[in-house]
């Protein structure tokens, strides 16, 4: 399972790519593999204000459904519209074309509540 070095992770298998006070969020390679073929992703609306570890959406595979939790707080500034027609991107490129949403962070310090790659790798391996 790929766990890129330049990202931070949550226990709920989301990743965060930080860029100043903005962040891109997706689910990990481990998560997409566990879910299987993803068929639909339900994301919050642009403009929504979301709180760290809150339930902000749903990811559906053929026979499972899983809550999406945000690893950080902030305002949603973009969602990945491409997933509507190509949800498989989350399976193919969970860290690339399969990103889910971008946030303007309200509490950048929350990064301290997240996991480093090595720590996440350990959790995912269990």
């Amino acid at each position: 399972m790929a766990v890129p070095e330049d990202l931070l992770y949550s226990k709920e298998h989301e990743w965060v790519r930080l860029d100043g006070d903005s962040a891109t969020i997706g689910i990990t390679d481990y998560a997409q593999n566990a879910l299987g073929d993803i068929v639909y992703v339900e994301l919050p609306r642009v403009g929504a204000k979301i709180e760290q570890f809150g339930n902000v959406g749903v990811i559906e595979s053929v026979k499972a459904v899983s809550d999406l939790f945000t690893p950080m707080s902030g305002e949603v500034v973009a969602i990945n519209d491409g997933l509507e027609n190509d949800p498989a991107a989350v399976n193919r490129e969970p860290y690339g074309a399969g990103w889910l949403l971008k946030l303007h962070l309200s509490k950048p310090d929350e990064r301290n509540n997240l996991l480093a790659p090595a720590e996440y790798d350990k959790i995912a391996a269990e």
Binding site: Y40, V58, E60, S61, A64
Partner: peptide, 13 residues
């Protein structure tokens, strides 16, 4: 199809 909308998978959601 689209069974993930339904009660036997989503249960309370």
């Amino acid at each position: 199809t689209l069974q993930a909308r339904e009660q036997h998978i989503r249960r309370e959601r």
